[in-house]
């Protein structure tokens, strides 16, 4: 993680089912499937650790309610109410 990135994406590897939709949708392509299986036998998505723009697209395409949390430096325009 670098403090220069606009965003951070936090992934819950135990909620993620490895569908890959976030990886497909991520504009800076900073997400990938982990080689290591999680407890349930899925290969969860992981963040490369840098390059996140905080756009939030991964959050919307993700079918899991809480697998993805997006943070943005200094908050931002599309903040939750």
């Amino acid at each position: 993680m670098t403090a220069l990135d606009r965003g951070i994406v936090a992934l819950d590897s135990e909620e993620c089912k490895g569908c890959g939709l976030c990886i497909e949708a991520c504009p800076p392509k900073v997400l990938s499937l982990r080689r290591l299986l999680n407890r349930y036998g899925y290969r969860p998505a992981v963040y490369a650790g840098s390059g996140c723009t905080g756009c939030g697209i991964c959050f919307f395409v993700c079918p899991e309610p809480g697998a993805i949390t997006v943070l943005r430096r200094g908050g931002g325009a599309c903040q939750n109410n």
Partner: peptide
């Protein structure tokens, strides 16, 4: 649900509160 507290960053998208944790 894990909590994320990173200085200078604010959560913009997270699991909605209307879901059970």
């Amino acid at each position: 649900m894990p909590e994320y507290a990173v200085p200078e960053y604010a959560v913009v998208h997270e699991k909605p509160r209307s879901f059970y944790s």
